[in-house]
Amino acid sequence: MSGRGTYASPPCMAADVDPAYVDPFGVDPEQAHDVARWRRAERARLAGLRERLGRAGRAQVSDRIGQHLERVLGDRGVRRGCVLSGYWPIKGEPDLRPALAGLHRAGVTIALPVVETRAAPLVFRRWTPGTKVVRGDWNIPVPPPEADVLTPDIALAPCLGWDGACFRLGWGGGYFDLTLAVLVPRPVTIGVALSGARLHTIFPQPHDIPLDLILTEDGVAATRTGI
């Protein structure tokens, strides 16, 4: 759906702003601090995993994930007019912009998440390969303010790490979870990750919301029960 939103939030990068970030919703403060410390260490390790792939390796992974994404969307009956939220790749994330451009040509409406207001759900602005992007928070390219605001039917979420229950380890802000908590209807959520970034668990906290499936360079790696 199109319209004008009134709120948005950063794309899960609060840990870059506040390295001491601790989940405020944790039931046990000591346990929450332990999980926060563990997650910070894992983020550093997993970011290094991406870096060691090198530019060529990351390009190959991105291409393979893009091919799997097109098959997954085809299997789910995604067609002209569906709204899919992608993302602008940062910090070695898989670059799915070529796949998004192909979906746009096939008639799928593409949106990107944008920060309009801190500490609030994300807003999704319409994007096309010809959109002249502007610099948003953390200098991330985003569609301009005049772009239509959309409600996604499907949302892609880049993952630093992931587990078999489809929980996602992101950059630490929890904003994607905050957005999912208020989107009605909730979109189908697809985590985009490296196969080697699988964790036994992310030690989910009360604010963590599982995704519907995890997609890696090897294909669908995990699916939430009942999806």
Rank of each mutant, 00 (worst) to 15 (best):
A44R: 00
L46R: 00
A47Q: 11
G48L: 00
L49F: 12
E51W: 05
E51L: 03
R52P: 00
L53H: 01
R55A: 14
R55L: 11
Q60D: 14
V61R: 07
R64G: 14
I65G: 09
G66N: 12
Q67D: 04
H68P: 08
L69W: 09
R71W: 08
R71Q: 13
L73S: 02
L73W: 04
D75K: 08
D75Y: 03
G77Q: 09
V78Q: 08
R79C: 14
R80S: 14
G81K: 10
C82M: 13
V83H: 15
V83Q: 11
S85T: 09
S85W: 13
P89Q: 05
I90H: 15
I90N: 15
K91G: 14
K91W: 15
E93R: 04
P94G: 04
P94I: 03
D95A: 06
L96W: 03
R97E: 06
R97V: 08
P98R: 04
A99L: 13
G102I: 01
G102Y: 01
L103K: 10
A106T: 07
G107I: 10
V108K: 09
V108F: 06
T109M: 15
A111K: 06
V115Q: 11
V115A: 10
A119L: 10
A120P: 11
P121I: 02
V123I: 09
V123S: 15
F124G: 07
F124Y: 05
R125I: 07
R126M: 12
T128A: 15
G130R: 11
T131Q: 09
K132M: 10
K132N: 11
V133G: 09
V133P: 03
D137Q: 10
D137G: 12
W138H: 15
N139D: 15
I140R: 01
I140Q: 03
P141A: 03
V142N: 00
V142W: 03
V142A: 01
P143Q: 12
P143F: 11
P144V: 12
P144N: 02
E146G: 06
E146W: 10
E146P: 05
A147E: 02
D148V: 09
T151D: 04
T151F: 07
T151N: 08
I154A: 10
A155H: 03
A157P: 06
C159L: 07
L160P: 01
W162S: 04
